[in-house]
Design a protein around this nucleic acid. Structure first.
Lengths: 214, 214
DNA sequence: TGGGACATACCGACTGGTTAGTCTGCCCCT
DNA sequence: AGGGGCAGACTAACCAGTCGGTATGTCCCA
């Protein structure tokens, strides 16, 4: 299989289940491999998870994995791409809405918390294993992250310029402030804990908005 | 060398330089090994750093490393112990001070930011590689971290009970909120950036205090 | 004061095990 | 009959930890 074809297959690995997949048949192999790898990376870390472990857990062999993916690192990169696309798309939606800036920021800030918790495996991997990427892929991921960061910062600056947010703290720092708490969710949030994802999101967004009160 | 003796030597690895070390002589080997390992772990991650790399960079051989440390993991654990002891000691000092609770919380919150930045290599390792510890050491580290967390939470609860902090957000969540931003420092803070450690600390402590205003 | 007994500090070759990735070939669908 | 989709044995590299060995003290008793 050519590398270009692999690219296509990787893109398809994210498609919804059961599209062209009749009855009780199992997930397509590429999808199953990515899902299995995601879980294992989140549980044990990237370096501690061997390719053999992944294929065993997915019920296939190395031949299958290297048929669909070019390398172990490709799996990691795939996870990153998924998270980045999802969060960027959602941020854009909230930031472009027709509402006062306080509301847009609150909604965007809360939404990223909810989607982070709902994809906690992906985001755990994202924050914990970023430095395992090769220089080129790392550069690409950083560029996409910067785009996200800047969109978020623009919201805060808008509020600062129009006077609804305090301007005596750098907007950049506020972005990292909020994403620190988002980043940290993977460390402490437990599904069986006392707070629902939405409750956590409301609290964190509330704290951010209050910290920004003039 | 017995294991108990190794314990002693490890404890000494933290001593100040030049105590019984005359003239221009290099650092003691154990100290140099730990410092080198810390730097390499922070740069490349624990799993990506081989023991051979560490001893090469420190200018010794494996024999020396295993003379002073029981295992590669011991080096990691040593870094953790250093960070935990330092931060717990400082938190206790600020929390026990004779001042209004707002002031004590502000000082403690700002101090942990400054010491985190000043020991950014250690804290990078701490947050990124915690899950590389063996179950027993992990348990020990978690216990010490919980003690730290609870001391910090007590400060917030005190303020909530006396009415100087808003009580409509769980104190636990506020602790994780702040430590999220501290945790995150290793990702974005650059020594050559526009803000000094103290400035970052003042901003972050300010944001926390404002978020807690009733 | 000299010398044996023992400890410390370190060297570096070696071992057993693991790992990512490759390659050849079979099976099945079209 | 030709190629996509995989199986599974294989390889070359690497890695943590071990172990026998050496050099440099230090202590103690004759």
């Amino acid at each position: 299989m050519t590398d270009a074809r692999k690219e296509q297959v990787r893109a398809m690995a994210g498609i919804k289940e059961g599209a062209s997949n009749g009855g009780g048949a199992a997930k397509p192999v590429a999808q199953r491999l990515l899902a299995t790898a995601t879980r294992l990376f989140a549980e044990q870390g990237y370096d501690r998870t061997s390719v053999q472990e992944i294929v065993d857990a997915a019920g296939v062999t190395k031949g299958a994995l290297y048929h669909y993916f070019g390398s172990k690192e490709d799996l990691l990169h795939e996870v990153y791409g998924r998270v980045l696309r999802l969060q960027q798309e959602r941020l854009d939606r909230f930031a472009d809405a027709d509402a006062p800036v306080e509301q847009r920021l609150r909604d965007a800030a809360a939404d990223v918390v909810v989607t982070t918790i709902e994809n906690l495996d992906d985001t755990k991997i994202f924050f914990r294993s970023m430095h395992h990427l090769s220089p080129e892929k790392d550069k690409q991921v950083r560029a996409e992250r910067r785009r996200y960061h800047e969109r978020f910062r623009a919201l805060i600056e808008e509020g600062q310029h129009t006077g609804v947010f305090s301007a005596d703290v750098p907007a950049d720092l506020v972005v990292d402030y909020h994403f620190g708490s988002v980043h940290h969710l993977g460390t402490w949030y437990r599904e069986d804990g006392p707070l629902s994802p939405q409750q956590v999101a409301d609290h964190l967004a509330g704290l951010l908005l209050r910290a920004l009160r003039p």
